[in-house]
Design a protein around this nucleic acid. Sequence first.
DNA 1: ACCTGAACACCGTTCAAGT
DNA 2: ACCTGAACACCGTTCAAGT
Lengths: 209, 209
Amino acid sequence: MDRALEFIEREGAGALTVRRLGAELGVDPTAFYRHFRDKDDLVLACMDRAEQWAVDALRDRLTAGDPWQDVLRAVADESWRIAGTYPAIYASAFARTTGGPGERRMVELLLTTIAGLGLDRPSTVLFYRAFADCLLSLCGANALVDQLGPEVEAKESSAWARVYAAPSAEYPATRAHVGELLSVTDRAIYDRVIEAMIQAMEAAATASG
Amino acid sequence: MDRALEFIEREGAGALTVRRLGAELGVDPTAFYRHFRDKDDLVLACMDRAEQWAVDALRDRLTAGDPWQDVLRAVADESWRIAGTYPAIYASAFARTTGGPGERRMVELLLTTIAGLGLDRPSTVLFYRAFADCLLSLCGANALVDQLGPEVEAKESSAWARVYAAPSAEYPATRAHVGELLSVTDRAIYDRVIEAMIQAMEAAATASG
DNA sequence: ACCTGAACACCGTTCAAGT
DNA sequence: ACCTGAACACCGTTCAAGT
């Protein structure tokens, strides 16, 4: 599994196939099925390991007195980093539940942090899931595009060009914002969402406290 | 393309292959390449058509005087509906840009709505992208799981069970919220995110106006 | 202008057989 | 306990040939 992760990171893109993994390890491709039930299991195991690394990194980064907002920002930042490092894994597992130790520790960290706001239990869980699903889904969407390779990236930017070239008469708002649409970054969008979620939690905590 | 969409909706899941599409249309699979450059082009074309339907449905649903908050809620609701109807398409295209008329009209609708708050152009665009990317990514994540079929669904719930069965001593917050974690719905999470984004826009509009 | 059919270079996975 | 190798049932895509 470690070699699988290392391999994926090095070869990137669509390198994660049972056959290529076998070739990399100098072993018959079908030997894989001695160690994992199927490819899906490997992907989930890699995802869980990546989450463990994220939690470990967070433990080093955080100290007990940190405000909860900064804890959430750090989790978001670490998720972004992991998704950028292992796009192939993240792209195929971000919508899934691994049920492994990495995920359990991450759930506990987020739930502890958000429970600290003193909301009722249903609101705490709803905010936890809303926050976590935003992180995973937005990082996953970026990983999906990363993972598809340069020819798709070219296609993406030509598609945006087509959107921006829309005639002014029919699409005035689009044309009025072309400059900003072209310069906005994925990371800025991500941070905007994170801050909106934090603001919503602050508002809920104030209202209930 | 219409037949492709119809076919996908009927057969669901992993039915979208060039070969099965050929069989469905009673034609050699490779005839497909006379009409689309590759499979990716078909998927993007279907996605754009789905977006057109969404915009058409929104036109019927909305009237000129609707508050901007309700417009955004209606867009979110329509996106959820489309993603649930065509999970195969949504799952493979939600992170992509089609550059087609459906997307152009959707961009224009959202940008017009958010520009109405009177924020500066960079903030307007950042909120538009943050809102749109949340919709697409969250709906996409749900579509991905839908699309994987019942055996993966079973795996998902057994994975959750493993998370919830975490020992209380190590994972106290998780154990304290098991009931709520089990009962929260994906739609409630989605709505929580949408409301957070709307709240953030309201706060920004108030601060700037 | 459109369709066909053989072919290429891949996938994940199984199962009987080897050491 | 682990690996091998043939085989199965698929993919997307190309290209020369047909009508």
